[in-house]
Amino acid sequence: MIRATHFIDHVHDAADTITLDETARHRRRLKMQSDSGISFLLDLPEARLLRHGEGLVLEDGRVIEVQAEPEPLYEVRARDEKHLLQLAWQLGNRHLPAQITADSIRIRADHVIKAMLIGLGAKVAEINAPFDPEGGAYGQADNTHDHSHGHHAHSHD
């Protein structure tokens, strides 16, 4: 089976696309199939979040462009910048993956978190959009993420 062993940041002439939600885009090694049926083995050196618009380079030189599939999200807005930072702190304290924009935070839909945010004065809109969360703080400058928590200890009081 043909392999994809590396990626490129921008694609100019893709042979095909592969459309995946955020969870399915966080991979290292997996048999995959492009939207038009090209089968390949993703075989990266380490797990990473494949970003919308990146290209997976196949051994034969073809490039498969990664497309972020829209998924149910909440778009969280605040009354001002300080309030948005306070909401971001609350979400970060719960270790929730979040996509930060200039004036909003996008998170996965979760009715318990929605109730908390509304209780804190946030405006929460249900949207269907690609999810591209921020990367982690522990050696993940390329915006990959890791859900292990063995690297630090703290209280959730």
Rank of each mutant, 00 (worst) to 15 (best):
13 D>Q: 12
79 R>W: 05
42 L>V: 07
77 R>H: 04
64 I>L: 06
32 M>C: 07
62 R>Q: 08
26 H>M: 09
89 W>Q: 06
15 A>H: 01
108 R>C: 10
9 D>V: 07
65 E>K: 15
49 L>N: 08
87 L>I: 02
95 H>I: 06
17 T>Q: 09
15 A>V: 00
91 L>V: 13
23 T>S: 07
33 Q>R: 14
10 H>G: 01
108 R>A: 13
26 H>V: 09
33 Q>P: 06
80 D>I: 10
97 P>H: 01
45 P>C: 14
16 D>V: 04
36 S>Q: 15
86 Q>V: 08
115 A>Q: 09
54 E>H: 09
22 E>R: 10
25 R>T: 02
70 P>N: 10
69 E>T: 15
22 E>I: 08
40 F>R: 01
105 I>Y: 06
64 I>T: 07
38 I>W: 03
18 I>T: 07
14 A>D: 05
15 A>C: 01
88 A>S: 12
11 V>M: 01
104 S>L: 05
86 Q>I: 07
62 R>Y: 01
31 K>W: 13
9 D>Q: 11
86 Q>A: 11
16 D>N: 05
61 G>N: 02
26 H>G: 07
115 A>W: 03
107 I>L: 05
51 R>I: 03
46 E>H: 15
41 L>P: 03
33 Q>S: 09
99 Q>M: 07
16 D>W: 10
65 E>C: 13
99 Q>V: 04
46 E>T: 15
95 H>G: 07
79 R>F: 06
65 E>F: 08
53 G>R: 09
28 R>N: 08
81 E>P: 04
84 L>M: 09
45 P>L: 13
49 L>M: 14
50 L>M: 15
80 D>Q: 11
93 N>H: 10
107 I>K: 00
103 D>G: 13
38 I>T: 13
107 I>A: 03
40 F>C: 03
36 S>H: 15
53 G>D: 08
11 V>E: 00
27 R>C: 11
114 K>T: 04
59 E>S: 13
64 I>S: 04
100 I>V: 15
37 G>Q: 10
60 D>S: 06
110 D>I: 02
108 R>Y: 00
54 E>A: 04
59 E>N: 12
93 N>Y: 04
38 I>M: 12
35 D>L: 14
17 T>E: 05
47 A>C: 13
54 E>N: 03
41 L>K: 10
55 G>H: 01
105 I>M: 09
14 A>P: 12
22 E>S: 11
65 E>T: 08
15 A>N: 00
112 V>S: 09
66 V>P: 02
97 P>K: 04
110 D>V: 01
96 L>W: 00
46 E>D: 15
90 Q>F: 13
60 D>V: 02
58 L>R: 00
33 Q>L: 09
14 A>N: 02
47 A>W: 08
115 A>K: 11
27 R>F: 09
27 R>S: 09
99 Q>C: 05
45 P>I: 14
93 N>K: 08
45 P>D: 15
46 E>Q: 15
45 P>S: 14
73 L>A: 03
83 H>L: 03
53 G>H: 11
41 L>Q: 09
105 I>K: 08
28 R>K: 12
14 A>M: 02
